[in-house]
């Protein structure tokens, strides 16, 4: 494998993971913003399956239910797009107005997700630094 395609692979993975982390950050921010909205249900991104879907694994695509062997074995669009990997959070103490957001839980996830995002940024930076080092002429 050439240097460039290896770099490409590494960076593509980091890029996919960063995009999903950013999306999860938005989903968690939405939960926090709607902590007082009646009937709002807290959501979260199933990160593992979304990442599998994004990097082309089998975990992301949803198969169609078939009742006959002659049906087409279709697969839904990648779980990374749209609502696919989005799930409702199991409510610990739902409010009387139908809201299931627990701000403390959401804040913990928000902070955790921000840490993961920063780790991925560091990873991307070290890949770029490594490539630059390799490209520099030997002295």
């Amino acid at each position: 494998m050439s240097l460039m395609s290896r770099l490409d692979n590494d960076l593509a993975f980091v890029q996919n993971a960063l995009q999903l982390r950013a999306r999860r950050q938005a989903v968690l921010a939405a939960n926090l913003a709607n902590a007082d909205t009646p009937n709002y249900k807290a959501r979260d991104l199933d990160f593992a399956s979304a990442l599998k879907g994004a990097i082309g694994g089998s975990g992301g695509a949803l198969p169609l239910a078939r009742t006959s062997s002659r049906h087409i074995a279709g697969a839904a669009a990648s779980a990374a797009a749209g609502w696919g990997a989005m799930k409702y959070r199991a409510a610990v103490q739902p409010s009387l107005d139908g809201n299931t957001v627990d701000p403390n839980v959401e804040r913990a996830h928000f902070a955790e997700n921000a840490m993961h995002y920063q780790f991925l940024l560091e990873r991307a930076m070290s890949i770029i630094r490594g490539a630059k080092q390799a490209l520099e002429p030997a002295r």
């Binding site: 999306r23 938005a26 989903v27 921010a29 939405a30 913003a33 709607n34 007082d36 909205t37 709002y40 959501r43 991104l45 749209g82 609502w83 989005m86």
Partner: peptide
């Protein structure tokens, strides 16, 4: 484009 990004 992002229906999951819900504001209030």
């Amino acid at each position: 484009a992002a229906p999951w990004a819900q504001g209030v």
